[in-house]
Amino acid sequence: QFLALLLYRWEVIMRETAILGILGIGTLGFYIDSAFEEFRFDRAMLLIGCAAFLNMGVDGLAHWLRKRLHLNTTPETL
């Protein structure tokens, strides 16, 4: 269960990097926001695509790891 929680948090952290970057923290979202400020829409779209593929890759990898390790992702009830 702890490993399933770690994988979940890893997915959430990867998704939050784009949001925090828009707030000014030096992550992928920061570079996307900077590209929009410089009217470099081609660079911004490329970075947005990279962020989307990164999130899909992390989600797929975490799903594969949960399946491979036979982790239960739903809480057990008594």
Rank of each mutant, 00 (worst) to 15 (best):
F2E: 14
L3Q: 05
L3F: 01
L3H: 01
L5A: 12
L7H: 02
Y8D: 12
Y8P: 00
R9Q: 13
W10M: 09
W10G: 06
E11S: 08
I13G: 02
M14H: 08
R15G: 03
R15K: 01
E16C: 07
T17M: 07
T17I: 02
T17R: 08
T17G: 00
T17Y: 02
I19T: 12
I19A: 14
I19M: 07
G21F: 00
I22D: 01
I22K: 01
I22V: 08
L23E: 11
L23C: 10
G24F: 07
G24C: 08
I25D: 08
I25H: 02
I25E: 11
G26A: 13
G26C: 00
G26Y: 00
T27H: 05
L28M: 15
G29F: 05
I32L: 04
D33R: 15
S34W: 06
E37Q: 05
R40K: 13
F41N: 08
R43Q: 14
A44R: 09
A44Y: 05
A44Q: 04
M45Q: 10
M45L: 14
I48G: 03
G49C: 06
G49Q: 01
C50H: 01
C50V: 15
C50A: 15
C50E: 05
A51T: 12
A51G: 10
L54G: 12
M56S: 04
G57K: 05
G57N: 04
V58M: 04
D59I: 00
D59K: 00
D59G: 03
L61I: 14
A62D: 06
H63D: 07
L65D: 06
R66H: 03
K67F: 07
K67A: 15
K67C: 11
L69A: 09
H70N: 14
H70C: 10
L71H: 06
L71E: 12
L71F: 07
L71D: 12
N72S: 06
T74S: 08
P75G: 03
E76A: 12
T77N: 14
